[in-house]
Nucleic acid binder design. Structure first.
Lengths: 210, 210
DNA sequence: TAAATATACGAACGAACGTTAGTTTTATAT
DNA sequence: ATATAAAACTAACGTTCGTTCGTATATTTA
């Protein structure tokens, strides 16, 4: 019976990962105890240490998973050039879709929330956030706007300014959701967020179209 | 000698307040122990309880101070009407100045950082942030843009959209500073932030001017 | 089937936490 | 000078924390 059950359910290590993520994303890393994780998994706290070196190793595993998922979900660089020729409208649409795809699984949504929380407390996560989720996207959008200007698709406004105009709103929406409204219904929030994003890109487009 | 020194320095309660704020803003509320506060003040931890009921009461006192400071620094509603007639440029300038004034003392700067951190963990602070620092300003700016449209000073774009366009950038700058770059030099950050804000309002103005 | 490995357990560790109790010192008011 | 009140002290409380140890029980490998 034990053997049969064991094969039907997820491995313990994965269950520790999932339950930890669930708790961390709700309460933050420090506020969750190893005993609490063990209780949720259904084992004793000492058994946790058969699967992870210590508590921090669980957090590290989660962040590693996050980085890998992000790396495999990004739009390939080469496609950009071809997309730009179809005009800014198409690009904004694809851009929005890319960001949504990155939070589209319950697991990733929880990690986003966790990363938002721990950015305050964890230096490693903070640096990652700043570099990969803020500076790198800004740089990418600057490049895109620069290309659009070169191709005479939009007015010659400072591309860095445009990148901030576009992307600061994305950050704002993340902030609004993951920090201020996380408890609320994801579907209805997403509907509202998409509407806000549409208004934003329409306004931006109106301002820079030739 | 003791008496003389005592009268020259701040009262103990105030020193507890100041040191707590200093530590809280650096490490977050939970990460700071009562012993640590006492050590910084230069008394035993039990003496803290002669001045504050418990640890949470210190945090409450800080938040109360913040609310009072914010309430007394806001621009009076009546002035808005007169300012609007001078055109959007003036209004953006005054608006930016108002926000800067609200973080212009070292004490207030620390509390902003603390509020940013604890918004994740403290339900009271979160509700305050959402209502008073996000929804209320957005509502205010919507009203302002609405008036500008009525007075034919700007194009008739949806005023709510304009409010988000303007204010999401302010939130973004707060986020960038208080969460991601807090350690860095305030002066140099503020110079850069002001430049970004100027670019932002210039872009916005260009897009909506009649 | 026997040996080896993986995984679970109960019990305990040392340290840190917020807080309280009782007592002594210091400052103020009569 | 003496009584009162404020504010400091020492010591300890009961909990919780992350982690380790030795051991028992499954599961896998030889």
């Amino acid at each position: 019976m034990n053997k049969k059950n064991r094969t039907l359910q997820k491995p313990t290590k994965e269950r520790i990962f999932d339950e930890s993520l669930d708790l961390f994303s709700k309460k933050g890393y420090e506020a969750v105890s190893v005993r609490e994780i063990a209780r949720e998994v259904g084992i004793r706290e000492s058994s946790i240490y058969n699967h992870y070196k210590n508590k921090e190793a669980i957090l590290d595993a989660i962040i590693d998973y996050f980085k890998i998922e992000l790396a495999t979900s990004g739009t390939p660089q080469e496609d950009n050039e071809a997309l730009i020729d179809q005009g800014p409208e198409v690009f904004f649409e694809v851009g929005a879709k890319t960001y949504i795809d990155r939070i589209n699984t319950p697991k990733m949504e929880k990690i986003w929330r966790l990363v938002s929380i721990e950015t305050y407390h964890n230096e490693k996560i903070k640096r990652f956030f700043k570099k990969e989720l803020l500076e790198e996207p800004i740089r990418g959008w600057e490049e895109i706007f620069n290309l659009m200007i070169e191709k005479n698709l939009i007015k010659p406004v400072n591309p860095r300014t445009l990148a901030y105009e576009y992307f600061s709103f994305v950050i704002y929406l993340f902030f609004e959701y993951f920090i201020l409204e996380y408890d609320e219904d994801f579907e209805s929030f997403m509907d509202l967020a998409l509407e806000k994003m549409t208004n934003h890109t329409e306004f931006l487009l109106q301002a820079i179209k030739v």
